[in-house]
């Protein structure tokens, strides 16, 4: 990588990947919540929501995060495609 590339940050440095991976794995380690449990919860959320809404399952994200003050949070981002009957228009 050239000096200029580096200066303008055009390539991801491997240490940034390392830091990102660490932060992700530590969120699960610290919370004592394994990634497999999050997957399970995600599947169940899909089942419940799909009764009423058609959602974009591929784009859906359920992540464990640590908010300020160290509280664990489950953050779900679920794109809706459309509302199912009888509420749909």
């Amino acid at each position: 990588m050239s000096f200029l590339d580096r200066l303008f940050g055009q390539e991801t440095r491997s240490k940034d990947i390392a830091k990102q991976r660490l932060q992700l794995v530590l969120v699960h380690d610290r919370a004592g919540i394994p990634a497999a449990l999050i997957e399970l919860i995600k599947d169940e959320i899909i089942q419940v929501i799909s009764k009423h809404l058609e959602i974009d399952r591929e784009a859906m994200e359920v992540n464990l995060t640590v908010a300020e003050k160290g509280q664990n949070r489950l953050v779900a981002d679920i794109p809706i495609i459309h509302v199912k009957e009888p509420y749909g228009t």
Binding site: R13, S14, K15, K19, L22
Partner: peptide, 16 residues
């Protein structure tokens, strides 16, 4: 390696 951005530096580790 730190200078090349290929090793976590002190700041990164303390941050974590």
């Amino acid at each position: 390696l730190v200078k090349r951005g290929d090793m976590l530096d002190t700041h990164d580790v303390l941050d974590i």
